[in-house]
Design a protein around this nucleic acid. Sequence first.
DNA 1: CTACCTGCAAATTATTTGCCTTAAC
DNA 2: GTTAAGGCAAATAATTTGCAGGTAG
Lengths: 133, 133
Amino acid sequence: MRLTKGCKKVLEVLETADDLSSAQDIHSKMRTTEDKPPGLTTVYRSLESLVNMGLVQAVDLGDGERRYEMIKPGEHHHHLVCDACKNSVHLDQCLIEELEGGIKAKYGFEVRGHILEIFGICSDCSKGSNGIK
Amino acid sequence: MRLTKGCKKVLEVLETADDLSSAQDIHSKMRTTEDKPPGLTTVYRSLESLVNMGLVQAVDLGDGERRYEMIKPGEHHHHLVCDACKNSVHLDQCLIEELEGGIKAKYGFEVRGHILEIFGICSDCSKGSNGIK
DNA sequence: CTACCTGCAAATTATTTGCCTTAAC
DNA sequence: GTTAAGGCAAATAATTTGCAGGTAG
């Protein structure tokens, strides 16, 4: 599995992104920075590879649009997503992993994965001094 | 906001459903039980009303298809979804609500909502005596 | 009568796929 | 030269919307 041009370019965009990026975000950003930008299809295919390689995680906020971000290989994390400015903050630890043992004991259910995203109002926005998008 | 025929029929289906139902599930179930079943559009619109009324919750499992289930008004819960048989079990308490205070204190973030679904293998399936769909 | 519910068809939108061209090793 | 990557157009598929007709109070 080679790390192709397309993958590399997608990674570059994700490295510099300060927030979650959709495939379309990544694609339009490339159109401004690259002279010969990859097509949307390539972005999707690159993202798929990167997710499989464990370098990128897909995040689903339930709005029908998948977002992506770089992660340390094999790790993952969750977000506090502001309903007002749409920015997100990483949680520094996964709240679910520590519960897995209890779930196994109580329900006999072996946890393999989970979706967790938290919505609300960030401190900037509740102060009024926000940067609402 | 009146509880229309369409809404009532959708509720009836959800009452008897033993698991999460997609709009299409509900619609096709009606085609077998009702002599003059509502259209898909009506199902979607009814579900929207019911969610707004707090009688039904929408559940997003990240597969691009929204599921629905009845809830006690104002409550909500999360699920253990089996990757093998696709059945789901309710968690009897929300794991996030108790963390809200800590999140507020640590991040200044006021929690208003969240998505949480847990995937894995249920006890039936790990025993091998499962009913894989 | 008037407002809202319904249904059908058409529109929308993110994502995927087919297929042919092109670049990599 | 063979094999996989990239591009473009077309296909999917869930959901939403426009609009015309129907129904209830």
